[in-house]
Amino acid sequence: MSTPQGTDEDIRSGTTLYAVLWPHKEAMVNRWVGVVHGSYPFETIGFLRTNSNRFANPVGYRTEEAAKALIEILFTDQPEEATLHKAVDEIIRVRAIQDFPPETAVGVVFALKDIVREVVSASGQGAACLRAMWALESRIDAVALMAFGAYARHRERLHLLKVEEHKRSHSQLMRLAMRKAGMEPEEAEPQKP
């Protein structure tokens, strides 16, 4: 209890924070979805907002799924890491290739802090929630790191795709060249397992 950062324990015991946030759960989900949509050029927003079919609007769908998972961390004792990881991964996978600068692609996670702070300060219970807020914000930071990891991973994958595509498209030419040079291609180039 004496650690200055706040702990999961604080969130658990921070019934005040829970009570403050709970009525706003859905509003916070929507707000965060709004932030993500807001990061797109504004001609796009309307479409993202009005259509939530999983196949007709994959971006909007993934955003909503991520928002739901993300909001859960505010309310659960032990956030389910696998679910969270998946939701973050799926949305960042899209944002990693969508022409955003890295800070915008990943930065949307931090917006959750502002959303929570707004709700808490409007409730006038800020002081009572302090320790729990610290803990919560650390959690959000952890999610942001998760998003950063996902971003890096997907960008790296993207570049690997180019390399692998190039190899695939010339596979038999390489083989021909290797054969002419008296080598078997397997010796020269490790195949993807």
Binding site: T50, S52, N53, A56
Partner: peptide, 11 residues
């Protein structure tokens, strides 16, 4: 197609 998977709006 939207009838089946359909969250309402698009359909």
């Amino acid at each position: 197609a939207e009838l089946r998977n359909g969250p309402r709006l698009v359909y």
